[in-house]
């Protein structure tokens, strides 16, 4: 099995989601970025507003609308910090 990313999505008032995923896609102020396991450490500010997509192993995809967000990638995983994170409608299979 391919290596997995440990992902945590935390909003101010509660932890939204945590688990293992194959890939995280987020948009920082500089541009869109996909994170795969083994990514170099990175701190980023997310674009306002933006969506964060987490692709799970089974091909399933979770999406949140995030405001006031930051992204932190360390050796141990990915943390998405948001003032607010709301579950977005599951992305229609356009991609």
């Amino acid at each position: 099995m391919a290596k997995q990313l440990h992902v945590e999505v935390v909003a101010v008032e509660k932890k939204v989601w945590s688990g293992d995923a194959e890939m995280v896609v987020a948009r920082t102020t500089e541009g869109e970025l996909g994170v795969l396991p083994g990514h170099a450490p990175l701190l980023g500010q997310l674009k306002e507003p933006s969506q964060v997509r987490v692709k799970l192993a089974g091909g399933e995809q979770l999406t949140w609308d995030v405001t006031g967000g930051f992204l932190s990638i360390t050796g141990t995983g990915v943390t998405i910090l948001a003032e607010e994170a709301a579950t977005a409608a599951p992305a229609t299979a356009a991609h």
């Binding site: 920082t28 102020t29 500089e30 541009g31 970025l33 170099a40 450490p41 990175l42 701190l43 980023g44 500010q45 006031g68 930051f70 360390t74 050796g75 003032e83």
Partner: peptide
């Protein structure tokens, strides 16, 4: 670990501190 920053660290600090 050498971090990459998006945007520049100073800019990010300015956004992060109020939060």
């Amino acid at each position: 670990p050498s971090y990459e920053f998006e945007p520049e660290p100073e800019e990010m600090l300015a956004a992060l501190l109020p939060k």
